[in-house]
Design a protein around this nucleic acid. Structure first.
Length: 927
RNA sequence: GGGGAUGUAGCUCAGUUGGUUAGAGCGUUGCGUUGACAUCGCAAAGGUCACAGGUUCGAGUCCUGUCAUUCCCA
């Protein structure tokens, strides 16, 4: 195979992905290398929402999960990655509604089925885009097992799950106060309400209510007449951020400890405008330090007030409708929007002399996660899921170490949330989603001959099943009406790790083979929305914790550290654009090495000429190219040399060194990968390939080529890197195998693809038997660097070959063996290279003292000896300082208390420094 | 109010269980191009590890407090 001069990702990626996919290599059934000691690795994709396209967060998720997956597969674990997408109820419905709006259509004018059909069309489009993007990222997921939260199998799982929980009494229907989104016209869960940390600019109105006395028993005049409160003599003053709700007030509350109001408790006040006579009650939850210490209580429109209302048996007066417009209860304000009402009401309060003051105030406003609308607490009939026992079980799973969370610190968040969990409002007044599988007998049973022990509602997995039951209870005439609500989208995602594997059919081969999953990997921002729900529902429904490990990655942030939000499209980065500029491997390498587990990643990307640029991705692209060219070099060399399959017994120093380094790297990379420290692992591979293999080993191989080392080391490096950079490594590995088999008739070990080949295993013997190779090579490198350093310092032209004298002590033999290497890499004249145990310094030379070795470079004609003297003196001083430090250390308590190994290390370091100092002193004395 | 995270070179970030000259990439400076790679090579400069205490023979690393930035929960 002829390789291009530079790596061109575009030429490789699509072709290579299709090739993997076509051969079925993503399927667990295709694996060639199974290590019985490895536990199966099963992971399910966090299903992207079919709301549009993927963003950087998805790219990060996919990069990490594919790394995990490819690594596990190469290690020999039976590996399955299930892909899929999420219908994302409320979010998708909002997008389609917006799209229809542009075409002048409104959901409310359409039939439910017509609208749902529109959403399915959008789903098909979005799904296609998302799938292509996932494939562009190179993910090795088994597409034949792809799932969608609303496909038939998943819908069946949802219906079954609902029924099981319903039958256990864990799902119930109740009229409760919920967070109501007046734009999307649905209740939402607590998690879907977002509150700005510092509140939003608003006002605090202070209003007085007239108190009933024996001289005044309520307003005599019309509201708005300016005389409404005429005759009142006593007042109670309250503060509120929401004056319009006073129309629904049913009491005023004060703290029982608050002496200011002791005489007021049990009195009655009159609600402005409504003229409703309401009690003043004492309730210990009232904060006496807020405002005047007295608060108005609107049980139908505020969560705290709702609780007070329940405690004091107050009436619940609703003054707003589902659109947050004032209803008939609001009297003169009926029909007005809540904010218009507020404006008019405040004006009227002023007119009636009831407005005491208005102050600026930061209001903690809850907003709908998807719509941004200000949430209105509202009493409505909803379905709830009881979370008490499930929450406890999910907490225990972590407490009992049956499931681990990485990084560990998220365990605190986990416990805190689960220990304070409240029931989950699972119904949504939407059209897109899983319709609740409950049917009501209709018309109302009272119209039939109602009997108390006949059920009037049926929860079944299908309409047919519901009718079957109803008919047997009520006779063939019975009519059923299905609950119109749909389920919270997270209900179906909560079943994801098992609904994708065939549940509720517990005999499904996938369920039996692959459940529970090994890993759940996702961003920490959905730990409650998704992870906790999967664990709770998984334990409850399957009796098993759905995965062993939860790995949480950080969030992608913009260059200025902000969250990448859809509200700022100018800051959004499209991963495909980056892939287009740098290639998938570079994007992936950046993403997995940019950060540490659980910590956010700041993108260094900036816009230049309309395109995103990233220095770090550029670096990663360069790395791919470096590897490409290194392989290209190896291939041309090996093709031109006589390839020998059998190993050469007499390995040179560089051979022994690179093998030892490779094995060290394998040990460390495996350890780091197993510990999820992918960033560090990636850097180690980078350094091994670039600094060790390319900069030193390949350079030295130009002198003396040993293909049986050169090629296998590269082969191992490609394997190590494959989970990080799948495309370029596969492409090069194929090219390498072609040469191997053509030259040596090597069966490429029966692995048709790098992704199916075994991950390198360390040969510990190579490391333990080669400490000398590592030490010798390090010394050789130091000698070469020292000479290069001097050359650069004195600007000796590159083409100038210089003489060198090495007084090398015990290293003389080794260095003599490497004289050609020294000559080549330090550009020394090999005929003028003298190496011996001890050699005197010649006149007029530059000295590089290395401790064991001293290099004398006779450069008299080329350098200013005064400058050399100054340089050497400077270096001497530095060395002397280090010696003083070291000597002081060794006579201190350090020598008594530190472990012997550490002391020995310090001693040998000191000895080396002293030798170095002597070399320099001798040289200076001579000059 | 409660709980996290972060603060290390000009920039973006590493830094395992404390071990004594704190690392990388990019950027900067100097030199370099007949071949694996200019998407490159060689060399250099650059850091009181936010601050103040403490523990220890020894602290970027452990403890306490302070400051700054930031996130989550209520």
């Amino acid at each position: 195979m002829e390789l291009a001069k530079a790596y061109n990702p575009k030429e490789v990626e699509t072709r290579r992905y299709d090739w993997w996919d076509k051969h079925g290599y993503f399927k667990p059934e295709a694996q060639k290398h199974i290590d019985p000691n490895e536990k199966p690795f099963v992971i399910t994709i966090p299903p992207p929402n079919v709301t549009g396209t993927l963003h950087m967060g998805h790219a990060l998720t996919l990069a990490i999960e594919d790394l995990m997956t490819r690594y596990a597969r190469m290690k020999g674990a039976r590996t399955l990655w299930v892909p899929g997408t999420d219908h994302a109820g409320i979010a998708t419905q909002a997008i389609v509604e917006k799209k229809l709006e542009k075409a002048g259509k409104r959901r409310r004018d359409m039939s439910r089925s017509d609208f749902v059909e529109e959403v399915w069309e959008w789903k098909d489009y979005s799904h296609k885009v998302i799938t292509e993007q996932c494939k562009a990222m190179g993910i090795s997921a088994d597409w034949q097992r792809e799932a969608f939260t609303m496909d038939d199998d998943r819908s069946h799982a949802v219906m079954t799950a609902f029924k099981q929980l319903y039958d256990k009494g864990l799902i119930y229907r109740a009229k409760r106060m919920v967070n109501w989104d007046p734009v999307q016209l649905t209740g939402v869960s607590d998690l879907e309400v977002e509150v700005a940390e510092d509140g939003e600019p608003g006002h605090l109105w202070t209003i007085r209510y007239p108190i009933e006395t024996n001289r005044w028993d309520g307003p005599q005049y019309e509201w708005g007449s300016g005389r409404w409160a005429e005759g009142a003599t006593e007042w109670i003053t309250v503060s509120t951020t929401r004056p319009e709700t006073l129309l629904g007030d049913t009491c005023i509350a004060v703290n029982p400890e608050d002496d200011r109001y002791a005489t007021r408790v049990a009195c009655h006040a009159y609600v402005p405008c409504a003229a409703r006579r309401i009690p003043i009650v004492a309730d210990k939850h009232v904060d006496p330090n807020f405002g005047t210490g007295a608060v108005k209580v609107t049980p139908a429109h505020d969560f705290n007030d709702y609780d007070i209302g329940v405690r004091h048996h107050l009436p619940f007066v609703e003054v707003m409708d589902e659109h947050a417009k004032m209803n008939a209860e609001a009297g003169p304000y009926a029909g007005l929007d809540r904010y218009a009402c507020r404006k008019h009401l405040v004006a009227d309060l002023e007119k009636e002399g009831l407005l005491v003051k208005v102050e600026d105030y930061a209001v903690r406003l809850g907003r709908g996660q998807r719509s941004g609308a200000v949430i209105e607490p509202r009493i409505s009939m909803q379905w709830f899921c009881n979370m008490q026992t499930m929450g406890k079980a999910a907490g225990d799973a972590v407490r009992n170490k049956q499931m681990s969370i990485v990084p560990e610190r998220f365990e605190k968040t986990w416990f805190h949330w689960l220990d304070n969990i409240r029931d989950w409002c699972i119904s949504r007044q939407l059209w897109w989603g899983h319709q609740i599988p409950v049917w009501y007998v209709s018309p109302e049973p009272s119209a039939l001959s109602h009997q108390p022990n006949r059920p009037t509602q049926y929860c079944e997995v299908s309409e047919a099943a519901a009718y079957a039951k109803a008919v047997s209870d009520w006779g063939p005439e019975v009519q059923l009406l299905r609950d119109p609500d749909v389920l919270d989208t997270w209900f179906s995602s909560g079943l994801w790790p098992f609904s994708t594997l065939g549940w509720p059919d517990v005999n499904h081969p996938d369920y039996k083979a692959y459940y529970p999953n090994a890993m759940l990997e996702t961003g920490y921002d959905i730990i409650f929305f998704w992870v906790a729900r999967m664990v709770m529902l998984g334990i409850e429904l399957t009796g098993k914790i759905p995965f062993d490990t939860v790995y949480l990655h950080g969030l992608i942030r913009t260059a200025d550290g902000k969250k990448m939000s859809k509200s700022r499209p100018d800051k959004m980065i499209d991963p495909l654009e980056l892939i287009d500029s740098y290639g998938t491997d570079a994007v992936r390498y950046f993403l997995v090495t940019a950060g540490t587990p659980g910590n956010d990643i700041k993108m260094d990307a900036r816009k230049e000429g309309g395109k995103w640029r990233s220095d770090r991705m550029e670096g990663a692209r360069n790395f791919a190219n470096k590897l490409w060219n290194a392989t290209r070099f190896v291939l041309t060399k090996v093709e031109s040399e006589k390839w020998k399959a059998e190993s050469v017994s007499a390995h040179s120093l560089p051979d022994r060194w690179i093998l030892a380094r490779l094995n060290q790297t394998i040990v460390e990379v495996r350890r780091l990968n197993d510990d999820y420290q992918y960033g560090e692992a990636g850097k180690l591979i980078y350094d091994f390939i670039w600094s060790d293999y390319c900069d030193w080993y390949l350079e030295l191989s130009k002198l003396n080529l040993n293909a049986p080392v050169l090629v296998p080391v590269l082969d191992s490096a490609l394997r190590l890197l494959h989970p990080f950079m799948p495309y370029v490594t596969e492409e090069l590995w194929q090219a390498l195998n072609e040469v191997k088999s053509a030259k040596a008739k090597v069966e490429s070990e029966n692995y048709p693809s790098l992704m199916l080949a075994p991950y390198p295993k360390a040969d510990h013997e190579t490391i333990s038997t080669q400490p000398s190779a590592l030490a010798d090579m390090t010394l050789l490198q130091e000698v070469i660097r020292a000479i290069r350093n001097v050359r650069a310092e004195y600007k000796v032209p590159l083409e100038k070959r210089i003489p060198a004298i090495l007084s090398a002590g015990a290293a003389a033999t080794m260095l003599n063996e490497q004289r050609e290497a020294i000559a080549m890499l330090a550009r020394v004249d090999v005929t003028a290279l003298t190496i011996a145990d001890t050699l005197p310094a010649p006149d007029g030379c530059v000295t590089a003292a290395l401790g064991e070795v001293t290099a004398y470079l006779p450069l008299a004609g080329l350098v200013d000896m005064a400058a050399e003297r100054a340089r050497l003196s400077g270096e001497l001083e530095l060395t002397s300082n280090l010696i003083n430090r070291s000597e002081a250390l060794l006579v201190s308590d350090f020598a008594k208390r530190a472990p012997p190994a550490v002391i020995d290390k310090e001693r040998s370091k000191l000895a080396e420094l002293i030798a170095k100092r002597e070399q320099m002193q001798a040289q200076l004395a001579k000059m």
